[in-house]
Amino acid sequence: MLDDRARMEAAKKEKVEQILAEFQLQEEDLKKVMRRMQKEMDRGLRLETHEEASVKMLPTYVRSTPEGSEVGDFLSLDLGGTNFRVMLVKVGEGEEGQWSVKTKHQMYSIPEDAMTGTAEMLFDYISECISDFLDKHQMKHKKLPLGFTFSFPVRHEDIDKGILLNWTKGFKASGAEGNNVVGLLRDAIKRRGDFEMDVVAMVNDTVATMISCYYEDHQCEVGMIVGTGCNACYMEEMQNVELVEGDEGRMCVNTEWGAFGDSGELDEFLLEYDRLVDESSANPGQQLYEKLIGGKYMGELVRLVLLRLVDENLLFHGEASEQLRTRGAFETRFVSQVESDTGDRKQIYNILSTLGLRPSTTDCDIVRRACESVSTRAAHMCSAGLAGVINRMRESRSEDVMRITVGVDGSVYKLHPSFKERFHASVRRLTPSCEITFIESEEGSGRGAALVSAVACKKACMLGQ
């Protein structure tokens, strides 16, 4: 009897593995994704193909990295998701002549009506938060230079001027797309009239992360975010950046690689679950690469896999709870928690219980395998993109072996128990001629924006502006 049951459990697990095998990517698959990513990057950089390229390769006008001589107080704003952060950054000489960066910050959550109302409502709310922060720190009387981390696709015309191309991540505030974001912020500050600010720089969160990590390690020339969304930036040779005049030196390019796949480059790798996630998203047909990796989508992918296993009578005796059938019910943090389970399955059992399920031991094991399959594919897909960037940098610099540091931020990278190990191992397999160091950014977005502002202020002083 026991043997029969054991055989049935083994057969069930084997069927589960057959279904989950769809998520496995072979090294040849990853090399294919990497080569296609490089081709799209090239198209994004070139003037004649930029418009139709899915990977936009947006110039950021960040050319210099901090040298350690900029000092002063800077205000930093960070808008990239449902939370908005205001930070005071003091850049100065530390002990023994070292450079020191001290920060104080406060988080504000953005109400739904500000995210989806008008641009005026959104930026009025942001300036209200700045006003509140300055009151708390008794700094209303000071006109501070301000660095703005704005983590949406922007076409820069200068370091302090950028046109919002399109909202992502659930934002829909009308009247912002096609307009200068810094102008919208300046107008809102003017409307309030109770404080003055000098907006000197606007950067993407990947750029802010790279600059913040450069402060720790001067070989950091790539910034990457794996959180709600997924994106990367890197220092490109100016001669390859056709959208900006000049051939000397390097400029940081914001790849906006989340949109890779929007022209069909990933079609052969998309599964039924991916198509369902895409169809029910706020932007169907867009940001397809990001939807395979980002935390906004990972939990939902797992939920759809679990429903398939229920329908195949391989999980929960073929019956799903009402909660499990509800879109968004299986949160991405559950994926991390399930994979963090120590082996007694308590954590998995508790999560499934909150979803109205009474799982068996085998159910718990199957749910864990589903989570591992989805998150491992995410790590491997992400590795193909980064390997594409790094191999490109090595080739354009004609280096036999390139040493490089990548600064990384984002909740999936930082909080998932195995993502970074799987990701690092896969990147290294795909970049055999590179020695890569990964560092995690601390308060990256805010500190990085302030350091970019410090560079901009120093330049302005040198130019006598």
Rank of each mutant, 00 (worst) to 15 (best):
N179S: 13
G294W: 07
L304C: 11
L77E: 01
V401P: 15
D217Y: 06
D113Q: 12
L306Y: 00
V222Q: 00
V199L: 04
S453I: 13
N204G: 08
A449M: 08
D274S: 03
V207N: 01
M381P: 00
V338C: 01
E242Y: 04
E322K: 07
S131P: 02
M34V: 05
T103R: 05
E319W: 13
G162A: 08
E9F: 06
T354C: 07
G227L: 01
R5W: 07
L134K: 02
V389M: 04
R369I: 07
C364Y: 03
A454T: 13
V427I: 11
F74W: 03
N240G: 01
G178W: 05
L77T: 05
G410R: 06
L288M: 14
K296I: 10
G294E: 13
A460G: 07
N313W: 12
D217F: 04
G446K: 10
M41A: 01
N350S: 00
N83I: 15
A188M: 01
D78W: 06
P153R: 10
H218V: 06
K31R: 07
E435A: 06
V408L: 09
D247M: 04
Y108V: 04
S353H: 01
G147N: 08
Y413E: 07
Y108Q: 02
D73A: 01
L451H: 13
E272C: 08
A259F: 09
E40M: 04
F269W: 04
K13P: 15
E331N: 11
E9M: 11
A259E: 12
E40W: 09
E27G: 07
V244D: 00
Q323V: 08
G94I: 12
G295K: 14
Q106D: 04
D4R: 09
T255G: 08
K15L: 14
K104V: 08
F330L: 09
M107T: 07
I348Q: 05
I110F: 14
M57P: 07
F330Y: 06
E196S: 10
T255D: 05
S453L: 14
G410F: 15
P417Y: 11
R447E: 14
D363M: 02
V101Y: 04
C461E: 13
M202H: 02
A370M: 02
S340N: 07
Q239H: 01
T332L: 10
R428G: 10
G285L: 12
T431P: 01
D247L: 03
Y297A: 14
S100I: 06
A379C: 10
A232F: 02
D363I: 00
L288D: 10
E112P: 08
M87V: 03
H137L: 06
G227V: 01
E442W: 14
E237L: 07
E70D: 04
E27K: 00
Y234Q: 09
V389K: 02
S212F: 11
V207E: 05
E221W: 05
I163R: 11
A384R: 00
L58N: 10
C461W: 15
I390H: 01
T354L: 13
M57Y: 03
E290T: 10
K143M: 02
N391A: 11
V33L: 05
E67P: 13
L164W: 12
L430H: 09
L292K: 07
I126L: 08
V408Y: 08
R46F: 12
S396W: 07
A456F: 10
G147D: 15
V253T: 05
S100A: 10
A384E: 00
T116R: 12
G229V: 12
I159M: 12
S353N: 01
S373A: 06
A53P: 05
A460L: 10
E27V: 07
K190E: 05
F316W: 04
G448F: 12
P153N: 11
S426D: 10
L301I: 12
M210A: 02
R428Y: 14
E290L: 15
V241T: 01
A329E: 15
G72D: 00
W257Y: 05
V277M: 04
E272Q: 03
A460N: 09
L184S: 11
L164R: 14
Q287S: 15
T49E: 04
M115V: 11
R422I: 12
R303I: 01
Q106T: 05
L307Y: 05
G299D: 13
N231A: 06
K459R: 10
M139N: 03
R186N: 02
L77W: 05
R191A: 07
R308F: 12
G299Q: 09
D194Y: 15
G147I: 03
D247T: 03
G246Q: 02
R43C: 15
R377I: 00
V71G: 00
A460S: 10
L357N: 05
V226W: 11
A119P: 06
S396H: 14
L45K: 06
V253Y: 00
A425F: 10
K172L: 07
A208P: 00
N204A: 03
V367I: 03
C233R: 00
R275K: 14
S418G: 11
P284A: 11
M402E: 04
L58T: 08
F419I: 04
I130T: 02
R303Q: 07
V455I: 14
E112W: 13
L386C: 09
E112H: 12
C364W: 02
K39W: 04
S418C: 11
M298G: 09
V199D: 04
M37R: 00
S445V: 12
S441Y: 03
E443Y: 14
D341E: 03
Q287K: 15
L288H: 12
L304Y: 09
R36F: 08
F74L: 04
L144I: 13
K143V: 00
A176W: 13
R358T: 03
S445D: 12
T362M: 07
D344R: 02
V401G: 09
G407L: 02
R5F: 12
L88E: 02
C434D: 01
L314E: 04
K102L: 07
F195T: 09
N83D: 09
S411I: 14
N83V: 04
S441H: 05
V408W: 10
V427Y: 02
T326W: 09
D113Y: 14
V310Y: 09
M202I: 09
S360C: 04
I225C: 01
V222K: 00
A384Q: 04
K296S: 10
L165F: 08
A425V: 07
A173G: 05
L386R: 00
M37S: 02
T228I: 03
R186I: 09
M238G: 02
L307M: 04
S174E: 06
S453W: 14
E177D: 05
I126K: 01
M197H: 09
E96M: 14
D4L: 02
R403C: 13
D344S: 02
L451K: 10
L451F: 09
L386P: 09
L315W: 03
M115R: 10
K104Y: 11
L122A: 06
H380E: 15
H141D: 02
T405R: 05
L355V: 03
I211T: 03
N391L: 14
Y234E: 00
Q337L: 06
T255H: 04
L165E: 09
G388C: 10
G328M: 02
G261P: 04
D132Y: 05
I351R: 04
M139V: 09
F148T: 07
R186W: 03
G261F: 08
D194E: 14
E93D: 08
R7S: 14
W167M: 13
K172C: 06
I439M: 08
K296F: 15
S445I: 12
G92H: 03
R422L: 15
V452E: 04
H380K: 14
E272T: 06
M57W: 00
Y234K: 00
M41T: 05
E319I: 13
T255V: 15
V406K: 00
G44C: 07
E120G: 13
T149Q: 08
S54R: 15
M402S: 09
A201Y: 01
E319D: 08
L144Y: 10
A21I: 14
F260P: 00
T82F: 09
Q347C: 07
R447M: 12
A387Y: 01
E265I: 04
M197G: 01
G72S: 01
I348K: 05
V101T: 07
L77P: 00
K102E: 13
P153M: 15
M381W: 13
S353M: 12
D311G: 10
E319L: 15
C382A: 11
E221T: 11
E399W: 12
